[in-house]
Simulated scan of single mutants.
Amino acid sequence: MAKGLAVTMRHMLRKSETQQYPEVHPDLPARSRGVIALVEENCTVCMLCARECPDWCIYIDSHKETLPAPEGGGRPRARNVLDRFAIDFSLCMYCGICIEVCPFDALFWSPEFEYAEYDIRDLLHEKDRLGEWAATVPPPPAHEVGAESPKELSAGSRPAPARRTAPVKGPAEGASPAQATAQETAQETAQGSVRETAQEPAQETRRETAQPTAREAARGPAAEPAKGPEGRPRREPPRAMRDIRSIRPPGSLPKNAGSPPEKKDGPEGER
Rank of each mutant, 00 (worst) to 15 (best):
Y59M: 11
Y59D: 13
Y59C: 04
I60G: 01
I60A: 05
D61G: 07
D61K: 15
S62M: 11
S62D: 11
H63M: 00
H63Y: 08
H63P: 00
H63D: 00
H63F: 10
K64Y: 06
E65F: 03
E65N: 07
E65T: 13
E65A: 10
T66H: 02
T66A: 12
T66G: 05
L67M: 12
P68M: 11
P68S: 13
P68Y: 09
P68Q: 09
P68D: 08
A69L: 05
P70H: 12
P70D: 09
P70T: 10
E71D: 14
G72Q: 03
G73P: 00
G74M: 04
G74N: 05
R75H: 06
P76V: 15
P76F: 15
P76W: 13
P76A: 14
P76S: 14
R77P: 00
A78P: 01
A78I: 15
R79K: 07
R79T: 13
R79H: 06
N80G: 00
N80A: 13
N80Q: 11
V81F: 03
V81E: 02
V81I: 15
D83H: 11
R84F: 09
R84E: 10
F85E: 04
F85H: 04
A86C: 06
I87H: 01
I87M: 07
I87K: 02
I87P: 03
D88N: 14
D88I: 11
D88K: 09
D88W: 02
F89M: 10
L91T: 02
L91N: 02
L91F: 02
C92M: 06
C92H: 07
M93G: 01
M93L: 07
Y94W: 07
Y94L: 13
C95K: 05
C95V: 05
I97T: 14
I97V: 15
I99L: 15
I99D: 01
E100A: 15
E100G: 06
V101I: 15
V101W: 07
C102E: 06
P103A: 08
P103Q: 08
P103T: 12
F104G: 01
F104Y: 12
D105V: 05
D105G: 10
A106S: 12
A106G: 04
L107N: 01
L107D: 05
L107W: 02
L107Q: 04
F108N: 04
F108W: 07
W109P: 00
S110Y: 08
S110C: 14
S110W: 09
S110F: 09
P111H: 05
E112L: 06
E114I: 09
E114G: 02
Y115R: 12
Y115W: 13
Y115V: 05
Y115C: 00
A116K: 13
A116V: 14
E117G: 07
Y118N: 13
Y118F: 13
Y118T: 12
Y118Q: 12
Y118V: 11
I120F: 00
R121K: 12
R121L: 10
R121M: 09
D122M: 10
D122C: 06
D122Y: 11
L123D: 00
L124T: 08
H125L: 15
